[in-house]
Design a protein around this nucleic acid. Structure first.
Lengths: 154, 154
DNA sequence: AAATATGTAGACATCTTTATCCAGATATCG
DNA sequence: CGATATCTGGATAAAGATGTCTACATATTT
């Protein structure tokens, strides 16, 4: 339903949010998020192009979010990587009635619309609430390396 | 988001509902629903196997729904053709906490759940309400051949 | 400037989805 | 029974998604 690429991008974004504002290398992200390292670059490229994250080359480089996690939604990530294709015109391409959708496609589009709205209201910060008893990416709090948690930005 | 195959299957199901209980040939369905004829068979096979429609070979054969359109939901069609894959376990495969989902995947699964519920409540009969000013498949009422509309079952 | 750590980009491989083709099975009609 | 209409199922092709590999560009450190 949601593409593998969006799943990867979302994991990475959440991971970066957890460590914001410190940049994290592709190696780190890939390893913690269980994403194939080489493919991760592909998944992050659209996020970079959309201006959601910045990439820094060279030693102490890596990826970091360009905004506060409270200002980036799941929808931002999804739309950048693998946009939800709303149904705007009749998929049968009939011109008898152009814009208005028949009940079938209206229903399908309603579902897509609902997903958009749900994801629009879900900020990365909501997903990493430290008071919750489960932290994202299915890693227990005590498994997150102290060094990473308390790292200072360069 | 939804596969092409489900879209085709849904179109066919709605078309059959509009003409129920008369069987319609793949040719008719394909032509009216704008589905590649040869591919239509593939799309309908899972519906047939799920017992949602029955296929009759030979002259005056064709496909027909096995239940009243008011008792077949969009979800029935979707699940038969291209099931919605709910997120039941952590996609990262970590065993630290098995069943309960972290906030990220919980959110994604909530969206999938909402789709299921919406589609579960949408019956084919709802989509072909003759009092609506738009009939499904984006064909105007007057474009539906009289012969088809008033055909009697064999 | 050289060495090293990192992201970028394009080529390629593999798998899945979508689409096409065709020989065969089966039902109806005359 | 023979001819015709129709669905079935398997082979194959084309396109897109996913995954891997490698040469290269750029930033940091010494």
């Amino acid at each position: 339903m949601f593409s593998q690429t969006s799943e990867y991008a979302l994991r990475a974004a959440v991971y970066l949010a957890m460590r914001a504002p410190n940049p994290q290398t592709a190696q780190q992200i890939a390893s913690e998020c269980r994403v194939p390292t080489d493919y991760l670059f592909k998944a992050l490229q659209p996020l970079s192009r959309a201006g959601l994250l910045s990439a820094q080359r060279g030693k102490h480089g890596g990826f970091s979010l360009t905004r506060d996690p409270s200002e980036i939604s799941i929808l931002d990530i999804i739309q950048a990587v693998d946009p939800i294709k709303r149904i705007r015109h009749c998929p049968l391409g009939l011109k008898e009635h152009g814009i208005r959708l028949c009940p079938v496609h209206k229903k399908l589009d309603d579902a897509l619309c609902a997903i958009e709205e749900t994801f629009r209201d879900s900020m990365l910060s909501d997903l990493i609430d430290p008071t919750a008893d489960i932290v994202p990416l299915c890693v227990k709090p005590e498994l997150i390396p102290e060094t990473a948690l308390h790292a200072k930005p360069y």
